[in-house]
């Protein structure tokens, strides 16, 4: 359970930092008037949708941390036989990174108000994300053809389960991306479009980060890293 505890520690640190800016030591029974405006502690100036997405990403992060925790706990048992990762995953990682880059370009374009570039960025991001999903499916095919079936070993089970969860989140993101693209083509208001593209980019970068983490875990580097840390500590 150490992975999830570390994750929660990060969340707690962030929450603590935020709370420390909220005047929790105020004595509200002595303060009358519109205190919030005078002292300047009130709602965040960030758009509400971004905060909503941020909270949602914390939940998604929690989910993947828990899968990783379970992975490490199950890994310690004797029947664990690590499976060789298909090399295709490297290509997929590149494609997903490309998708993120394309969306970042779309964000820059949206800030400058270049609608054509936004459309190009969104289309590239969508297509590369679809290519990533197709690549993941092909990687699954390769593994099953080589005899690494879902139920034959817990390492395989975890591989399919975690990649499937990640893929489902990308799929969900594609729905949002689709709606943004529809807006980009049908002349959504500039401010709305910018926010919408920024939200997509935020989600995409986060899922890329999650993918890099789980790739490291599934490839076994994370375990090596942890054991090095443990040796340093003891």
């Amino acid at each position: 359970m150490s992975v999830i505890l570390v994750f929660l520690l990060v969340i707690a640190g962030f929450a603590g930092w935020w709370l420390s800016h909220q005047r929790l030591t105020a004595k509200p029974w002595l303060e009358q008037g519109v205190a919030g405006d005078v002292v300047g502690f009130d709602r965040s100036s960030l758009p509400t949708a971004k905060i909503g997405l941020g909270v949602f990403l914390a939940v998604v992060g929690c989910l993947f941390s828990l899968f990783t925790s379970a992975y490490f706990m199950r890994m310690g048992l004797s029947d664990w036989r690590p499976l060789p990762l298909p090399r295709l995953l490297w290509l997929n990682t590149g494609v997903l990174a490309l998708s993120s880059v394309a969306l970042q370009c779309a964000v820059v374009a949206a800030r400058r108000g270049q609608v054509d570039m936004v459309r190009l960025g969104l289309a590239t991001a969508g297509l590369t994300a679809l290519a990533f999903l197709a690549g993941q499916l092909i990687a699954w095919r390769q593994l099953t053809e080589d005899g690494y079936l879902l139920a034959s070993n817990p390492a395989n089970s975890f591989f399919y389960l975690i990649t499937a969860m990640h893929g489902l989140h990308i799929l969900g993101g594609l729905v949002g991306l689709g709606r943004t693209s529809a807006g980009a083509w049908n002349g959504m208001r500039r401010e709305r479009l910018r926010l919408s593209v920024e939200l997509c980019a935020m989600y995409w970068h986060f899922l890329l980060f999650v993918w890099l983490c789980i790739f490291a875990v599934l490839a076994g580097w994370a375990a090596t890293f942890v054991s090095i840390c443990q040796r340093l500590l003891t």
Partner: peptide, 22 residues
């Protein structure tokens, strides 16, 4: 999770003027 996002973000962002956390 859908509902929970609403409750949290409404408390963060929906408060009226003068409604500090405390």
């Amino acid at each position: 999770t859908m509902g929970g996002l609403n409750y949290v973000v409404t408390v963060l962002q929906g408060r009226t003027r003068g409604m500090t956390l405390m």
